[in-house]
Nucleic acid binder design. Structure first.
Lengths: 182, 182
DNA sequence: AGGAACGTTTAATAGATACTAAACGATACT
DNA sequence: AGTATCGTTTAGTATCTATTAAACGTTCCT
């Protein structure tokens, strides 16, 4: 370990890249975000590419998605036609945004799958296997709905604040961490 | 749509497969679980393979991992040396198990990354960029710890039960859904 | 207008991962 | 013991996705 900030930034980018990957996001997006997160002030697309030894094209692609997800924001400096970027500082905001995104894609899809499967089951059939399958699908359906409500509740935690005092789930989370706004 | 149970099972397996994939699990594992979930009683490995048009090897691989995660359980029928499997019925149990698994892998890894990055920063350096990077890393660190506590709390919800009445986050989740045991 | 400095797109490549088929080892039955 | 029936392992293949390099279009500057 040789205590250069480039060194630290490199291994950090790598680590966050892996973390992103396990979250179903692009590894490169993680690297880009990590670089920006440690760097104060606006950074140009080409500086990012250079700093990560990554092609401009890839940075362009990933940073656009990152911007859409609210991980970074584009900044215009007048008199400069380059695009500059900054990392979002509020990590709760990021989590909420990404979670909502995934929830929309994955949860709705799952509900749809269950619904279609239920419909394509032979109707009014008294076969044991059909009855059993239907029971399980119903169970899955209500499970998904509960998860949905639960996720929604957790994701909108910032609206709770005053109420959370009585909630054992959250009691030990520092208040200032909870008081975030979208 | 032609109302055969095979039809329903097929599209269901496909759908759950995709869902698993977006959760970072094997698509095939999702298919296997889906098949078992809709089928009552023990099913042999070869029947699963046949039912999904999948190789024995692949089923063997995926079902072992599925068993480790508690998605399915192996069943011995005496007088039969084949392996039979059944799907776990309690979906909350599954979620908890998988989440814990991921938390161990991913969360601990992230914390370690942050820690190492902090250590490899030039020490006692008053450069603006170093000070800034350190501030951000500290912020990330405390964020991760909060997330950790939060996830742990949610994952151990079954221990709450009586207490959840006062918790706005969970009030509208049916009680019977919460009262699950590991 | 000509040219330089951008970001984006695209077509091709590289890389990783999942899956298969077949060989293998083990176990139970005759 | 020999054989048939399992599940597992492995080595190869296929598939899919991320990434690059280069062409492209645009904007700004002189």
């Amino acid at each position: 370990m040789d205590h250069s900030i480039e060194q630290a930034s490199d291994s950090f980018s790598e680590g966050i890249g892996q973390l992103f990957q396990s979250w179903g996001l692009q590894k490169s997006m993680g690297s880009v975000f990590a670089l920006l997160y440690l760097k104060e002030g606006p950074t140009s697309l080409e500086d990012i590419a250079a700093g990560l030894s990554m092609s401009k094209g890839n940075v362009s692609l990933n940073i656009r998605e990152a911007e859409r997800l609210g991980l970074v924001s584009k900044i215009w400096l007048k008199g400069d036609r380059r695009d500059y970027y900054e990392a979002e500082d509020n990590l709760w905001k990021i989590v909420r945004r990404v979670s909502r995104e995934r929830q929309k894609r994955e949860f709705d899809f799952a509900v749809e799958t269950v619904k279609e499967s239920l419909e394509s089951l032979p109707p009014k059939n008294k076969d044991n296997e059909v009855v059993f399958a239907r029971k399980r699908l119903k169970n899955l359906d209500s499970f998904l709905k509960s998860v949905n409500r639960m996720v929604n509740s957790v994701l909108s935690l910032e609206t709770l604040r005053g109420a959370t005092v009585n909630c054992p789930v959250l009691k030990h989370i520092p208040r200032k961490k909870r008081a975030v706004t979208e």
